[in-house]
Design a protein around this nucleic acid. Structure first.
Lengths: 148, 148
DNA sequence: CAGTATCCCTCAAGATACTG
DNA sequence: CAGTATCTTGAGGGATACTG
């Protein structure tokens, strides 16, 4: 791209959105947060992304006010990432992409799951989606049915 | 990316979708086709993208069966690009991105339009969305209202 | 554990000239 | 007009070592 902020003056909403979340990793991080994932190491293992890239994307997502950091809910002194209201409103985007992919990018009967540990190759145990304020989110699968 | 096809074996539908249309230009091309744009030169002027990149993206979109080529509807001997059924089913994705962008990426009262000629800076005259089989598509703006 | 700091390399993207 | 061919650049991304 010519300049880092090149799309920010684009008059098209789609173009601006693509500029913010239209890279290889951002939306996948957001998707994982929707599925209850909150910590750096979990993102890293699940996505198989390099640590520096992950660090950079998380910063950009926080900067774009899609994610925000807060103290970990368990005892540890570490931080965790949660969706802001702006981030949660990306839900329809993720659902639309998921639906399109399911319908057009999979063979009949092919298995599709979401959270896989890139090292062990095993599914990551489901953590249960939790919203920023602690209330439960509707699981993605359920929402897919509803939208359809 | 490690290999060109790296995401094709991803078990997550969102990941595969992002791999197909998650670059800077593909979705913007598709958006323009939804708005009735069909020709190479129009894409080029509207998006300001380099010709070789545009050529490459159009090929990939045709290859992914999102667009297909057909003889131009006017007298000319040239081709034009139209959406396949698979391509048209990307509509919810484009709408979701547009809505999110409108709500979160624009100042109050800021003007947002879609088709701008990157050289003249003037809006491209609206061409009227036409589907693959010649029937009219619901304009994006209308759909936004309905979905909301 | 959650990052930061380096180094390196590939590829996406732009510019431009050329062709049918 | 609708591309193709060629060259160059810089950002995106990976690997790895290091730090609080």
């Amino acid at each position: 791209m010519p300049s880092p902020e090149s799309m920010n003056d684009e008059p098209c909403p789609v173009a601006r959105s693509v500029d913010v979340i239209g890279d290889r990793w951002s939306l996948l991080i957001v998707r994982n947060v929707f599925d209850g994932m909150r910590r750096f190491g979990d993102f890293q293992r699940s996505l198989g992304v390099a640590r520096n890239i992950l660090s950079d994307r998380l910063k950009k997502l926080v900067n774009a006010e899609i994610l925000e950091m807060r103290n970990a809910s368990d005892g540890t002194a570490y931080q965790e990432y949660v969706l802001t209201a702006k981030g949660e409103s990306l839900f329809p985007v993720v659902v639309a992409l998921r639906q399109w992919g399911e319908q057009h990018l999979f063979e009949a009967g092919e298995r599709h799951s979401i959270l896989i540990d890139k090292h062990t190759g095993k599914p990551v145990p489901f953590m249960g989606p939790i919203s920023e304020d602690g209330t439960a989110l509707v699981p993605a699968e359920t929402e897919v049915q509803k939208v359809k």
